[in-house]
Amino acid sequence: MLKVNDLKVEVEGKSILKGLTLNVGAGEVHAIMGPNGSGKSTLSHVLSGREGYEVVGGSITLDGEDLLALSPEERAWKGLFLGFQYPVAIPGLNSSVFMREAVNAVRRSRGESEYDAMDFLAIAREKMKLLEMDESFMTRAVNDGFSGGEKKRNEIYQMALLEPRLAILDEIDSGLDIDALRIVSEGINKLRSADRSFILVTHYQRLLDYVVPDYVHVLSRGVIVRSGGRELALELESSGYGWLENETAQA
């Protein structure tokens, strides 16, 4: 479904991704791990179309279509979702107003009918239950005054509403205590399906105890240096990222 081929990305003239290749099939869960500065977040941002990243080589296609030619909203319409590492707070913007507009924008792009306020309310309630969220979320401003855990839960709630085909979750586990991690992970697991794929970008393997990936990739200095199954994450847990330095030094 998603094919990233030999992707090279620069930020302000500095090379960050140096030939990254990744294939994600329908329904698969891929974990991308790596130390700070390895390019994990850059990959998330480039996939979602954030400005400030210059693609200098390679390609990204989603179902054969060139993703790089699309605006962020067009990518969302195609079913791509980014769960932010640091979701932005927007005082004054009601969460429900925002999400109804977003869901309807996506539905419009697919030629589907828009939800009215009542339809949306019913769907929103159902998704909130999934994430053990309080109904007061709906009347609050987007992420305004939210705790770290609430913000991340809100990301998963948005994902549940938008029903993407490919969700990229950028350090969704950072800043979560164990209870919040459990709720967020269960939310992700409930949303796993045969035609929905995930890319979990994380520094720690802890998340992967809850959301068990099909594949684990280790990113270092802008390239994937190792790929494997779940056991690779466990190996990293015990050995840390130190070995990468040696391996790269030897290479």
């Binding site: 979602s48 954030r50 605006s71 969302a76 004054g92 977003a102 924008a105 401003a141």
Partner: peptide, 20 residues
């Protein structure tokens, strides 16, 4: 960007943010 990544066009996102 946050709003656009959720599927809102730039004019829609601007209007929502100005109102907010």
């Amino acid at each position: 960007f946050y709003l656009r990544s959720r599927g809102l066009t730039e004019p829609q996102a601007r209007a929502l943010l100005l109102n907010a």
